[in-house]
Write a protein that binds this DNA or RNA. Structure first.
Length: 482
DNA sequence: TGGGGTTAT
DNA sequence: ATAACCC
């Protein structure tokens, strides 16, 4: 069973919380006009109207436990029970809980990790294929509950449960609501008020979250955490409160406690490295600092968009929707290395990246209409020494992708090497530490037939775009320009 | 820091 | 094309 620990405690807490539902927050005033049974539950909850289109949502954030390590332990069960790290180049990018007991941390150097834990077993995780495949299986499983699933990286998903919760509520007879229970932890052990429709909805959400985790375990042998709350920010923050393989629901009255539990604003999802640095200059380091800082000055400093968004985040407010991810917008492969300083070397590396990418994009079925080459130059060092060049893929090359196998290889290498020489002056010495190839601008395979309206409206097929100059997408560097 | 991803400008 | 964000 997925639940490893905390099970007893959370059940007892939940029972205790329900034994005195009136102990915490006052009863919602929304139901107070109800008739017959002032102290019963029957009259009130179904009558509490959540204003249509209002911001009262039920969101779950699902976060797999040390995902790459779990996938490796499934591939090789002998690794189970041993301290395991997944290695990319000189780093342990993630590790299981056995390894964490020894002090191994994410993105720790292999040397340091081995020092902390000499018995550490390492597996190479530079090829993401199996992780990516398992990641999409998880997303697809969650999509069976609701189509509103948004991926965040390979190991996290948001699901908007609002509609599902509404449907389950309709199935309840009013006198059943006293039997609604929470699944998993309640943040801060806040007492549950069964007369509060928002509490009820979140509890139903917690039950669905438990079903999702059960399903992930039963069908995919994967464990993870879940957080249920009224928006993505809070769901994400609360999912991490009880850590391996547990779930937590946040009731609205505790949301301020949750955001103030962050010790620094950099821990707020949406406030990254750059923004945190700029806020630091302004003397803003805590959530409270950001809450109370002058909005006007913040807008002048960061721009109105970022300022308003992050200041709302500091209050736990986040109206961003769960945007269904659907199929990927891009496919890329990269490789980093100590040194690449010749064109031939670069070409070989690009060919390897490209071969893998063509396979992936072929399996997807859609056709990329744009290619991009990315490099990182040595000593550019400061993260963001990356430069890129992209161009449209000529339609005759697009056709070769997916159909045959490697017909597209040679023309694509030619295109990529032109992009390469556009970025790197090969007559001068150079030193690269990363190469990446990306296929994007993916379109469904063209079903348009000659002579039809679709044919003439499909840029890759119609004569107007196959000859003469193309005036669209001037940002792309066209191969004709070389 | 690796090997990925996304959206906004 | 770059810059920011996420994992």
């Amino acid at each position: 069973e997925p639940e490893e620990e905390g099970c007893r405690d959370e059940e007892e807490d939940a029972v205790r919380a329900m034994e005195r539902p009136e102990a915490g927050a006052a009863c919602s005033s929304l139901g107070s006009s109800g008739p017959e049974e002032p102290d019963g539950l029957a009259w009130s909850v179904h009558d509490q109207v959540v204003p249509t289109g209002s911001s009262s949502r039920v969101i779950v954030h699902v976060d797999l436990d040390c995902f790459y390590a779990q996938v490796e332990m499934i591939s090789n069960p002998e690794l189970k029970g041993k301290p395991l790290g997944v290695q990319q180049k000189y780093h342990v990018v993630t590790c299981n809980y056995e390894a964490r007991k020894f002090g191994v941390k994410k993105l720790m150097k292999v040397r340091d990790a081995k020092e902390k834990c000499p018995q550490l077993v390492l597996v190479n995780g530079e090829d993401l294929t199996r992780y990516r495949e398992m990641s999409y299986k998880v997303t697809e499983l969650l999509e069976q509950f609701s189509p509103l699933v948004e991926r965040l990286g390979f190991d996290e998903n948001f699901v908007d449960l609002t509609e599902m919760v509404e449907k389950r509520l309709e199935q309840f007879q009013s006198d059943d609501l006293s039997a609604v229970t929470v699944s998993g932890h309640v943040y801060k052990n806040q007492p549950i008020n069964l007369r509060d429709i928002l509490h009820i909805r979140l509890l139903i959400g917690s039950q669905i979250a438990a079903e999702m985790r059960e399903s992930m375990y039963n069908h995919l042998s994967l464990t993870g955490c879940a957080g249920v709350a009224s928006n993505k920010l809070l769901a994400k923050l609360v999912s991490g409160v009880f850590k391996p393989n547990q779930q937590t629901v946040l009731l609205p009255e505790s949301s301020q406690d949750l955001i103030h539990s962050l010790s620094h604003i950099k821990e707020m999802p949406g406030i990254g490295y750059k923004t945190a640095k700029r806020l630091e200059v302004l003397g803003i380091s805590s959530v409270s600092d950001l809450q109370t800082f002058s909005s006007k000055i913040l807008e002048k400093e960061l721009g109105i968009s970022v300022a308003q968004r992050i200041q709302k985040l500091s209050f736990g407010e986040d109206n961003s929707p769960v945007t269904p991810s659907g199929p990927p917008q891009s496919f890329s492969e990269e490789d980093s290395f100590k040194k690449c300083s010749s064109e031939v070397e670069a070409k070989n590396k690009i060919e390897e990246l490209l071969a893998n990418l063509l396979n992936r994009v072929c399996r997807d079925g859609r056709k990329p209409h744009t290619v991009r080459l990315v490099i990182r130059r040595y000593s550019s060092e400061k993260y963001h020494g990356r430069e890129s060049r992209q161009c449209p893929i000529p339609s005759h090359v697009i056709q070769k992708i997916g159909t045959g196998n490697y017909d597209a290889m040679t023309p694509m290498v030619d295109i990529l090497m032109k992009l390469f020489r556009n970025m790197v002056n090969v007559k001068m010495p150079f030193h690269l530490t990363l190469l990446s190839v990306c296929f994007c601008n993916l379109k469904a395979p063209n079903t348009a037939k000659k002579g039809t309206i679709d044919y003439y409206l499909t840029p890759s097929l119609s004569t107007t775009s196959c000859s003469g100059k193309r005036s669209f997408k001037m940002k792309d560097t066209h191969m004709e320009d070389f």
